[in-house]
Design a protein around this nucleic acid. Structure first.
Lengths: 248, 248
DNA sequence: GTTGACTCTGCCGTTACGTCATACTTTATA
DNA sequence: TATAAAGTATGACGTAACGGCAGAGTCAAC
């Protein structure tokens, strides 16, 4: 019926110290104690704890949680709405930071290690601010092996690839006002996939993700659209279609 | 040439106390002091302060800033990249909170909880009355491949998407009284487009059409407006604007 | 010489616990 | 049953980045 502190802590996945703390600030005081002073928690206490942990997960400070728990008349909805506003504001600031950091990194990276042709082709993940995301989504190995393979190429080889890519860009650009579903478009995009896989390791998912980078990272967009406005968008769609058709 | 503390504080837009603190922890010690012990800052000190404030804006802790400032050999880029990773992780957690808060608010409002089925209704064409229309407008392949992709998602994956969608809904809801043309709104709607494209594949036309569904099919409207009245309308507009801006 | 603005050095408070340190109680083992 | 091991209690310090206050000294102007 009653549980000792460690038992509760283990069930809730928190530390004993945390329960001590909650007792100390009066947030969750155990219903009873033994003569020796051991805290004894009931099932009700456990329920209250769940409530507390729920609000904690939402990022509420313990003081507010105490208010909410203690007075049932407290307007919870209003509190939640206010809280949400704060969270959104926080996110905005975070976004700002992330953008600035990305810009700074980009600035520091500069144009050091890529030739113009390579940059133009725009496939080196180490050059783009979404590298982290790419790594998270598709795994480090895929990204690394792509970059590694790239680094091991001779300059001539690199330029050769860049040329092939540019040619393919031009062909795709010519199709960009037609349907990305068409056999012709899909054939061209297949060549694109094959070409990329001669340089790195692209799973179908990674391929599709790369396509989305073409529209979500404006540097890609800008580079690609030099071959024709809307090409990035078109390629993204075609790559998505290709992936869906071949996956399964 | 040299400035007293308040002068510096006013220029930098920080408090005197903060400068005291920076001196205390050795982050920014003024070059000289008067006999009476007054701190005297030089222009160089001011420059250093700018650096400090820059990194502070990025969310770096003062300790790290001290390391970075003190040792010029310190690998700043690595530090920035690591920092960015942390920020991204932080943002993910924040998004989770936002999504959960939004869900809780809806729950308290007494709104019927949107089931996963409903959430994905707009993306699963076989579930909605516009499938026929969708097929005509965007072709069989698009509709089929989208449906297949959706069906192949595991429950966890669906839940993951649902969370992301909730957070994004909440963010968009916060903007719904501003202009759908704004950079922020368009950035958010772009995220919406990218998110949708991770689930299925949407041409820009399909995206725009989906937006119109949000207001023409009241089931969508009702569901979406749970995040805030007028959200469906706002999203529809923003999606239309996005499409027009990117099509060409 | 006095007033007011400015500056100095502490020191306490903030958040949500983590991490000892020391001492006591209960449980398990030999 | 004696003892070791595990669990528990209280108390206190540390954390990050200052805000705010107190008491005291300094500087410039009127």
């Amino acid at each position: 019926m009653t549980m000792k502190i460690k038992e509760v802590a283990d069930i809730a996945g928190i530390s004993v110290r945390t329960l001590h703390h909650y007792d100390q600030i009066g947030l969750l005081c155990p219903t009873s104690t033994t003569e020796a002073g051991y805290r004894l928690y009931t099932d009700e206490d456990l329920e209250a704890l769940q409530q507390i942990l729920f609000f904690k997960e939402l990022g509420f400070p313990l003081k507010k949680i105490k208010e909410i728990i203690e007075s049932p008349s407290f307007n919870r909805r209003e509190a939640l709405e206010l809280h949400q506003k704060m969270l959104l504001e926080k996110r905005r600031r975070l976004d700002q930071m992330i953008a600035t950091v990305a810009k700074t990194i980009q600035h520091m990276k500069g144009d050091i290690h890529m030739s113009n042709k390579e940059k133009f082709a725009g496939f080196d993940f180490s050059q783009n601010p979404f590298e982290q995301e790419a790594r998270e989504r598709w795994g480090n190995e895929a990204v690394d092996s792509s970059n590694v393979k790239l680094a091991s190429l001779s300059k001539d080889e690199k330029d050769g690839f860049a040329e092939e890519m540019n040619a393919l860009y031009a062909r795709l650009a010519a199709l960009r006002h037609t349907s990305p579903h068409s056999d012709e478009a899909q054939a061209a995009i297949k060549e694109w996939y094959v070409l990329l896989n001669r340089m790195g390791n692209y799973s179908l998912d990674a391929f599709k993700g790369l396509g989305q980078l073409y529209i979500s990272d404006e540097r890609f967009t800008k580079n690609i659209d030099q071959f024709g406005e809307g090409l990035a968008q078109f390629m993204c769609e075609a790559m998505g279609i290709y992936t869906n058709n071949h996956q399964k």
